[in-house]
Design a protein around this nucleic acid. Sequence first.
RNA 1: UAAGUAAGACAAAUAAUCGCGGCUGACAAGACCGAAAGGCGUCAGGUGAGGAAAGUCCGGGCUCCCAAGGGCAGGAUGCCGGAUAACGUCCGGUGGAGGCGACUCCAAGGCCAGUGCAACAGAAAUAUACCGCCAGCCCCUGGCUGGUAAGGGUGGAAGGGCAGUGUAAGAGACUACCGCCCGGCCGGUAACGGCCGGGGCACAUGUAAACCCCAUCCGGAGCAAGACCGAAACGAGACAUAGGCCGGCCCGGCUGUCUCAGGUGGGUUGCUUGAGCCUGCCGGCAACGGCAGGCCUAGAUAGAUGAUUAUUCGCGACAUAACCCGGCUUAUCGUCUUGCUUACCAA
RNA 2: GGGGCAUUGGCGCAGUUGGGAGCGCGCAACAUUCGCAUUGUUGAGGCCGUGGGUUCGAAUCCCAUAUGCUCCA
Length: 113
Amino acid sequence: MEYSESLKKNRDFQIIYKEGKSFANRYLVLYVRENGLQKNRLGISVSKKVGNSIVRHRLTRLIRESYRLQEAMFNSGLDMVVIARASAKGKGYQEISSALMHLGKLHGVLKRV
RNA sequence: UAAGUAAGACAAAUAAUCGCGGCUGACAAGACCGAAAGGCGUCAGGUGAGGAAAGUCCGGGCUCCCAAGGGCAGGAUGCCGGAUAACGUCCGGUGGAGGCGACUCCAAGGCCAGUGCAACAGAAAUAUACCGCCAGCCCCUGGCUGGUAAGGGUGGAAGGGCAGUGUAAGAGACUACCGCCCGGCCGGUAACGGCCGGGGCACAUGUAAACCCCAUCCGGAGCAAGACCGAAACGAGACAUAGGCCGGCCCGGCUGUCUCAGGUGGGUUGCUUGAGCCUGCCGGCAACGGCAGGCCUAGAUAGAUGAUUAUUCGCGACAUAACCCGGCUUAUCGUCUUGCUUACCAA
RNA sequence: GGGGCAUUGGCGCAGUUGGGAGCGCGCAACAUUCGCAUUGUUGAGGCCGUGGGUUCGAAUCCCAUAUGCUCCA
């Protein structure tokens, strides 16, 4: 991803859960927190409750892909954590992507086009 | 053709664009990050999950720890022979069970080494007489004593089975066949099978997935193993007091510089060439082994396979490597190949 | 990567040499009261997680499997 990094440490996730704001819809939950950097940082979390390893990997990829393709739409300087919910199991790219954009709109982190 | 049975193969395909992880090559080679070890940009090429990668139920390699040697305890396995690095796996047999058959299935050592348990029912559960049968006696529509396991009834199981002889009634008391036990001979590496003789049955119900006995095997932990490089902070030592702070000065303390130990955050390695795969020939019924030729086929470290478009069909199941192999078990949409069996039809 | 535990009425739990499926709360009915609560009596409710096996007989023993919880690194 051109402008972004991924979140790795559990500590980073915990900070965002504590200090960030969250919105949710049917498939996803999105936490956002300003990090004061030039870049965005993205973390994806899929719980074991959602499904087996195949399902979890698939969802991770769909979320990463939809973020990658829409990356230019987001403001910069944000830490974001996307959590997949159990109802997202078995859904396709179109649904996941539109769910992510919907949450971005709710947070007001999308650039005005 | 239909039904079945056994073995095996495949796991949607093709193209384009964008994106991700290793690898190789070329160009940059420094202006970056870091204390160090080390990492790093662009382009091109090639490569990138499974038959179960799963469950973690077994076995081994590898690594470290412990260790003079041996035993006990504990655990596992359990007909015989073979294969193998090893196995609880596989192959071939034996015995038993199922099927018309092809074929399939079996935790299949030992309750005549010992101990325990067997509710209820039943007279009695390893020792006995309730009914009955027979004999004798008596106070004779009955009772008592003795004999008896053929019959009834209970039970999952009643003391070898069945037929005959025999007897007061019966009984391996005796006899034939079957079963059991013992001994011998023959075949087989063996499990075992066949034959002969004896015991006349005294040992003899079931349970070892009850304790246990017998035989064989097993040291412990696991790649977050282990090895290497190694900040900061903490610790030890040395030096300098040249400088700063405490002070009038010295000692001393803090600070400073250097060294060492330890090995945390972090990094490198272990990390993929291996009991490897494919083809052919040879040995073996087979599992498998030998020889020759060819091939190199993921290596991530928060963890890489996705998205879009087009075409085709049956509209795609179960499911993602994490040190590596050999098995087992479980999940699974379907497609195909071959051998064999049975039934029907045709020649 | 290794190990352990649990699963029994609606809920929480007992259940050992393998033979009866139980306890408390809850539920229903009846009694008591003018009525309710309390109390008492009675009752319903179970494939003992699932599938096989051993045994005459399995909640219990053995094997496989599912779900949940938990420990160590």
